[in-house]
Write a protein that binds this DNA or RNA. Sequence first.
DNA 1: TTGTTCTTATGACCTACTCATAAATACGAT
DNA 2: ATCGTATTTATGAGTAGGTCATAAGAACAA
Lengths: 183, 183
Amino acid sequence: MVRTEKKRSRQERLVREIGKNPFLKDDELAKRLKVSVATVRLDRTELGIGEYRERVRDVAKTKANGVNDCGEVLDFNMYHDGISVLNTLDAAVFDGGTVIKGQAMYGYAENLAMSVINARSALVRVANIKYLKEVHRGDRLVAKYEVMRIKNNEYVVWVRIKKDMTEMFRAKFNLSVMDERDS
Amino acid sequence: MVRTEKKRSRQERLVREIGKNPFLKDDELAKRLKVSVATVRLDRTELGIGEYRERVRDVAKTKANGVNDCGEVLDFNMYHDGISVLNTLDAAVFDGGTVIKGQAMYGYAENLAMSVINARSALVRVANIKYLKEVHRGDRLVAKYEVMRIKNNEYVVWVRIKKDMTEMFRAKFNLSVMDERDS
DNA sequence: TTGTTCTTATGACCTACTCATAAATACGAT
DNA sequence: ATCGTATTTATGAGTAGGTCATAAGAACAA
């Protein structure tokens, strides 16, 4: 039988620590968990968590493409509308706190808007954004997006984001398409 | 007399290559520039460009905090206005290309707006964004930002971004302050 | 006490560098 | 053509932050 208790809870902490701050090296993690570096490495491999440099590189890669995430898509009708659940765990927050930055919310919304008009890359012409409530890291957000108008290559897309039935965020984008996906 | 011609143009190419793709290691750069790895390293140090791991880490850090960059601040009057030069080398671009995503431009603008009202973290209430021209990685942008109105804790800030006298981007933010800096 | 799981330590090897040094090469000016 | 300097390339030692294999020690359950 596996002793698990100490080990399991430590590994949970490990995941949380790295989740909160991917920029921790093994020796730092070892200090925090009060175990040896060797143990941290063992735990990491057991949990399939890569080394510092890989973690940092992965964060950097997603950054290079901006927020690039349409969440878990629950419903989707191309050129019409869609519903997604957003995971806010890796969104940018204000220093130390849990309040998610506007720019992260904007990024999500822009992405959803582009996805629904099937554009790998659309130029946003105009965006009108309304932040109704503070969003916190970990909030489970539901986004509804809808194409409101199409005129030539110009689309108007609305994105509305709720948490527990309460509207948190609203955006209207005017987009013009440069490039269609799989066409 | 410095021979410069070959060297200078190669170093320019180096900057461009790394600008386009910060995830290039010295050996890859050496292949592209058809010189030895040693030369690439020399060029990098002459140009003050850090090594692969630093570059990647920097990209990752800015991602973790969102765009967190007020550029080179040329002029600044707290609660009034400011002028910055933005470096677009690490901004998010569309897949493979050099066109900078709207969300990156938004991020810059949001930051500038917050900096001018001296807020570490301000809630954006409303944002109106107009993208006038495509911005490309490497473009040298000049941003002017200005507090237009203050009412209680509510600020209205305009941000205008130009490249070579041409306006590329315009944003109006309604912000409300949560927390003053060094107060 | 024994058997098993966990933890820690050790040493060899890896990548993608830096830094110092030296040799080879290229080119401009005389 | 040759000298002097700039530039390029190579070499070897050292670094951080790891991997991997191996083995010894500690903790615990039966």
